[in-house]
Write a protein that binds this DNA or RNA. Sequence first.
DNA 1: ACGGGGCGTCAGGGTTGCGTCAAAGAGCGC
DNA 2: GCGCTCTTTGACGCAACCCTGACGCCCCGT
Lengths: 226, 226
Amino acid sequence: MTRVLVVDDEPQIVRALVINLKARQYEVDSAHDGATALGLAAARHPDVVVLDLGLPDMDGVEVIRGLRGWTRVPILVLSARHSSDEKVEALDAGADDYVTKPFGMDELLARLRAAVRRAEPVGDEGDVIVETGDFTVDLAAKKVNRDGKDVRLTPTEWHLLEVLVRNTGRLVSQRQLLQEVWGPSYGTETNYLRVYMAQLRRKLEGDPSRPRHFITEAGMGYRFEK
Amino acid sequence: MTRVLVVDDEPQIVRALVINLKARQYEVDSAHDGATALGLAAARHPDVVVLDLGLPDMDGVEVIRGLRGWTRVPILVLSARHSSDEKVEALDAGADDYVTKPFGMDELLARLRAAVRRAEPVGDEGDVIVETGDFTVDLAAKKVNRDGKDVRLTPTEWHLLEVLVRNTGRLVSQRQLLQEVWGPSYGTETNYLRVYMAQLRRKLEGDPSRPRHFITEAGMGYRFEK
DNA sequence: ACGGGGCGTCAGGGTTGCGTCAAAGAGCGC
DNA sequence: GCGCTCTTTGACGCAACCCTGACGCCCCGT
């Protein structure tokens, strides 16, 4: 059975969605704020998330980023805001679809089916915890541990690490790194990468001057190795 | 480079899309009717299709079904019709997203990015690997392994290897190699090839002086054999 | 036998790209 | 408004990479 996580702070919307979804044999969890949503997502591993952007405790886009850190579950954004910028921001943060309120239930359900359908053949989610000889990365908990102590990373450092770890062993081009971490309009600012790679190495490598995990491929990009 | 197929019978829409997409480094094909669209899709294997529903020769939904018969390429539907039923029908036929005209270019591009992003495989073992008796090449990870150790290639060496491997068993002319690796304005600088072929052989061949995989066809070009 | 074209090899020199450091700007909470 | 952290920017030295030219070899035709 398909499991849906509904996140919205308006009880009547949640109720309407839950009723409609359950009637169609979906299994439904619901949350009314971002923190609960992230917790439920981690605990229940839904097959699709319906997410309202106007939450009481945090920005909806932050919820998207929080999810995207460790899962590729389809995210269907629901929002009262019609502005183009809002949509672009949510989609680029990792949302799969964006529906404006008020919405037609039929359309929403069709978009939900589309989102679930194309996610289907994807195998089980990869390991959420990655270990190297020097440190451990927990993508879901957003934690890095080294010698038993948690390492403190800034948001940008973490984001960069995340992209690299999700592509363990693969070369990631400078362009791709810049676009995933800094946004689609970046692509040539390689000096950012130099600075932040240095910071990651300083915090995580055994010998930062001789990196074993964050490998530079001159002229091409970087590669993370366990 | 990401390849987009634009299908619309209104020339001004096609033009606007093509200009915007090309400016963002997409490779664009376009068709103005359904039959052409299906043919182009089969011939060019686009990474994403932008499809208008109102075509002169056939129903847009038929085009979706035609595509879905053999490919899972993301389909972004563009339509002047706002009715809920139309959307549901298109989405259930296999479309990934539905945008109503008039549309904001920023939003469309963001939805396009989202569609492309989620289509890209992330499976750790989904890579295409080419094996020879002496070494293995992983095109997606940009990795070459020999005797259990990773071989370091410079950008130019890698690019050259890539072109040759993609044409395994086939003769690739000097001109084609030069143009693909060094750019369209090159074609006669065969000395470049001599230098870089030598480097590839030195790094990858068991006995570089007696190449088994990187074969010279005097006066014509080079050939890669497993 | 001789000469020329195509190819392989090698090493120097110019250019680009990378790592590092430091300091200025931008947010954020207090 | 002040001080903190994080991000952005610039400058510099060093390493990696790319181009170039010289030389020798082999094959082929003269």
